[in-house]
Amino acid sequence: MNKATIAYIVSAATLIVAVWLGVSIGTVKIPIQTFWDSTDTTASNILWKIRMPRVILAGLVGASLAIAGAAFQGLLKNPLADPYTLGVSSGASVGAVMTLFFGLSIPILGPYTLPVFSMAGAALTMFLVIGFAKLVDRSMKMETIILTGIIFGSFLGSVLSLMIALTGEELRQIIGWLLGSVSMRSWNYILMVLPFVVIGSFILWLNRRELNAMLFGEERAHHLGVNVKRRKFMILIGGSVLTGSAVAVSGTIGFVGLVVPHMTRLMWGSDHRHLLTLSFMNGASLLIICDLIARTIISPTELPVGVITAFIGAPVFAYIFYRQRRKGAM
């Protein structure tokens, strides 16, 4: 059995365990037979109407952010890049909040108006950040990109604050949502986000070999026969679709896209043919577990899940930064 097969088995097993823990643990313990035996209607309702949608949504959001992070890092050859550090999540938030703020609803998009605007915000920010970073420093050093991400993130953050200040009654709702949460979401949210997760991940997966080539630089990728311009565009769009849809249903949840690809790479190597799929699975597992911790650690009070991911993510960020600088590879 080769390393890749083992990686898939381990990741799948982790995901199954995470899902099981996510649905079973809580103020009410759910026994395993509830899955097939619905005689206990209370347990069955908790499982299927409350916990399962929440766990699946957490999984989809975690998976989206992680695979997007893996792709951004590969594309930019920058281990610190993820939707959050690049400011893309903030862009998606602004798109989403604007939709709520102005009460936008485009008839043909219907319920998809929010995620579509969120994605548009993400994509726009992504191109602006990369364009500006390139303007500052043609070689696009690690720090340049992250700094640009911070600049744009801060700016967009203040735009958000402004919009919140101008809102009245919806203030609380938006703030809770901004901190990142997957609680109180119904199956509708899953249906809203699922097509975009599938499309975005598929776009990235189509570029798995191109990402491998781009690890050696855009010039090298070009020499190996990669249509760099087109592939780069595809990857940025794929990543924006994933980030936008994730933010649309759960707000800004930071560092998942940073931590998961990093850990996955450490364990299983940086071959994108496997890294993307494995990051997807592990991202789902991580956010399901984080959400579980968020709602149980100081129960009955619930923490926003973004607090937990930042708590884990920021030190990992610091560690990667330290390692890269010491290595002097950048």
Binding site: N78, P79, N212, F216, G217, S270, D271, Q324, M330
Partner: peptide
């Protein structure tokens, strides 16, 4: 030139 992520020799050549 230097590069940021690790790749095995065979994977590199396979590209």
């Amino acid at each position: 030139h230097a590069h940021a992520f690790s790749h095995s020799v065979k994977d590199t050549v396979a590209l």
